[in-house]
Design a binder for these strands. Structure first.
Lengths: 207, 207
DNA sequence: TGTAGAGTGTATATTTATGTATGTTTTATA
DNA sequence: TATAAAACATACATAAATATACACTCTACA
């Protein structure tokens, strides 16, 4: 699959993969140019051309490129593929969740943990309100960006300008966010359903 | 071994070795020309040719040169018994790790550093993500080929077709590769446990 | 409705770095 | 001094990367 690719071609593929995860599309000739530190769109266009000739990319009807196979190679284990997921710092209300000011770092995550076409981000867990659910202070939460959730999901919500992870429960037009640990400090939060879910916790990474 | 080499040839070898360790490639005819204070590319080209005839250099399939015999400086002239360990260059996707295309040189290493019956190879350290662990840019890493590791070992993994050395940590069905220095540039890499370790760093050779 | 601007893929010609080839000059030494 | 080896100055062909321009599609906005 990825045989006989030059270093530059592999680097281009890496950038394309990341662009697919975060922007949902193949980068433009000029975006790729910047990513590869080229100075002319020609250089990256030639690279795309050669990837097309090697049948890694394909041209669609409208002229735009499409990646032929974004699947994991069989010998994945020895050849881990990753995408970069932004690690968000403080998520304040009103600020778009992907605003550059919020991005603390970029963390490489195996593509095996990522669903194609979905947007993800990482958040550092603070406090211990979820420790019964296996989330401890300092853990990294891999969160899939979405607006809906199933009952029982651990969701990220913005409550009073704070990023909060709680268990989602909806019934009778009311939404109850339960902390997993049931003590006096962490009481459930009861809201109407006119609030926005930011995402669902897909994985908890203990560092 | 190097007895029938002229002074100029020895000097050229020194420059080639240096370039191999630090730039990861045989210098171009003109780079070697400058290094040897020649004024014409012909002069260094002739020198490369004669090193090839004396079988110190060898042409690979792709036409680029490869150094056949490479002793690390400490061993120069010593009577210590040595074995030849391959120095791997870029580890491209799809190519088995010991394929000829990957081998940049054969380096003589003292047998005292080698356990019998184990397979070893050398890798040039790039970047400084491991500098807190005593690995600096340009060091040669002596790596024992094995698939398993203990938490805390410095392992070699192929991440996005790049050879990466990081501290190994496995927990909860996830594998976390930590850089020793913890800053915004060097973040951990998070993988599923479905990936293969290439080897464990046994020694760091500083040149 | 029309226009300006940004972003797109592509085309043309140029620059740069490479290995090699052609002779010529210098240097060492027999 | 004669001669062979070494180093020289150039030139050529190729590949990669460059600068720049062109034509097309959007979208925003007056």
């Amino acid at each position: 699959m990825f045989y006989n690719l030059s270093d530059k071609e592999l680097e281009a593929l890496k950038i394309i993969r990341n662009s697919l995860v975060h922007q949902g599309r193949i980068p433009s000739v000029r975006e790729l140019m910047i990513g590869l530190n080229y100075k002319s769109p020609r250089s990256s266009a030639v690279l795309l051309k050669s990837l097309e000739e090697k049948e890694i990319l394909r041209k669609k009807m409208d002229g735009s490129y499409q990646i032929v196979d974004f699947e994991i190679p069989e010998d994945y284990g020895s050849r881990a593929q990753t995408v970069k997921i932004p690690l968000l710092g403080s998520v304040a209300c009103g600020i778009p969740i992907f605003a550059d000011e919020n991005i603390e770092a970029e963390v490489s995550i195996s593509v095996e943990m990522i669903k194609k076409g979905c947007k993800y981000f990482l958040l550092r867990a603070e406090g211990d309100s979820m420790d019964k659910a296996g989330i401890n202070n300092g853990d990294l939460l891999l969160i899939k960006q979405q607006q809906d959730a199933e009952n029982g999901d651990r969701i990220l919500a913005l409550i009073d300008d704070e990023a909060t992870v709680k268990e989602y429960n909806k019934s009778n037009g009311m939404v109850i966010l339960k902390p997993k640990s049931n003590n006096k400090i962490h009481q459930p939060i009861i809201l109407t359903d006119n609030f926005r879910i930011q995402g669902v916790v897909e994985n908890v990474i203990k560092l």
